[in-house]
């Protein structure tokens, strides 16, 4: 158990270090181009943080308590690895795409004022995310809380919290399977760099067998990210260094999820797959009482 916690917390620290560095690439993009470069990252943060909130639609009527960790692996679609910029300088044509944050090669464009250059991406096909969570349930309602205390990232700090409510619908109607609705809100912040706010509302159903619970759900969701960075004008064509702040909405708006949970006494292992703007595999380990 101690080893598991050590591994999970190590994963969270690693994840935190990533969030502390992702903005380095933004410094080389104008406010007009940064949105297209970072859009898949906004989608990724929203998709992952809106994942893993349930592995059953059954909610205790008496008292239930659970704690555990959820790990997500978000798959980056090929069409989110490149974008074609709109070069707003006369005499330049964007004749080839350049990398988004998850793409590979940063492009360059020749024109009457020299080269306009774009940064390379991270060249990643999938990106993980980890969150700890606690659930307390009674009267067919579960309160779900996620929390990562402030982690220092040098000059910045990462903090994350999320809160949600799940309520059993099937407690009111005689149904052959459990049905519930859930709403969840979370906020991830790296001070002076980014703030990501995510909201999801889902309708889920599950069916319990002896040791296994099959579950699935549909979810509408939204994400937005506020970004702050210092543009360094690598081409020297945009008036030099300046601070930029902007808001970007995620493209993750709907998903369909199917999964299964293995219930072994107070230990529950779950895994599910969601199809949406970015597909995600979610796996979790919970201790439930």
């Amino acid at each position: 158990m101690k080893k598991l916690f050590t591994v999970f917390f190590s994963l969270i620290i690693i994840q935190a270090s990533v969030f502390g560095q992702f903005d380095d690439r933004l410094d080389y993009l104008t406010d007009k181009e940064v949105g297209k470069f970072i859009q898949p990252f906004v989608n990724y943060v929203g998709t992952s943080l809106n994942s893993g909130m349930y592995h059953t639609a059954s909610v205790s009527d008496v008292f239930g308590f659970s704690f555990g960790f959820q790990g997500m692996l978000v798959f980056i679609p090929e069409d989110q690895k490149t974008f074609t910029p709109v070069l707003d300088k006369a005499g330049y044509t964007a004749d080839k795409p350049t990398a988004t944050i998850f793409g590979k090669e940063g492009a360059y464009y020749s024109g009457p004022e020299g080269y306009i250059v774009f940064p390379a991406g991270l060249d990643l096909n999938n990106v993980p995310m980890f969150v700890p969570q606690i659930g307390i349930s009674t009267f067919g309602t579960e309160l779900l809380v996620r929390f990562i205390p402030k982690i220092s990232l040098g000059e910045n700090e990462l903090g994350y919290w999320g809160v949600g409510v799940k309520h059993s619908i099937s407690r009111y109607f005689p149904l052959p399977l459990d049905v519930a609705a859930q709403v969840f809100y979370s906020k991830l912040e790296v001070t002076d760099i980014m703030t990501s706010k995510n909201l999801s509302i889902n309708l889920l159903a599950s069916k319990n067998f002896t040791l296994v619970c099959l579950y699935g759900g549909i979810q509408i969701e939204s994400s937005s990210m506020n970004l702050k960075y210092t543009f360094k004008d690598p081409s020297g064509l945009y008036g030099g260094e300046r601070k930029i702040e902007l808001d970007i909405d995620g493209e993750n708006t709907f998903r369909f999820t199917l999964g299964a949970a293995l219930e072994l006494g107070f230990i529950v292992l779950n895994a599910d797959y969601s199809i949406g703007n970015q597909s995600v595999i979610n796996g979790g380990l919970s201790f439930e009482f």
Partner: peptide
């Protein structure tokens, strides 16, 4: 977890360097 950790380390490695075009 080790699988996820490996995947995470891969991500961290990618953050270690950046390819920059310098005109």
């Amino acid at each position: 977890l080790i699988l996820l950790l490996t995947s995470s380390c891969d991500v961290v490695d990618k953050f270690d360097t950046i390819d920059l075009n310098i005109p």
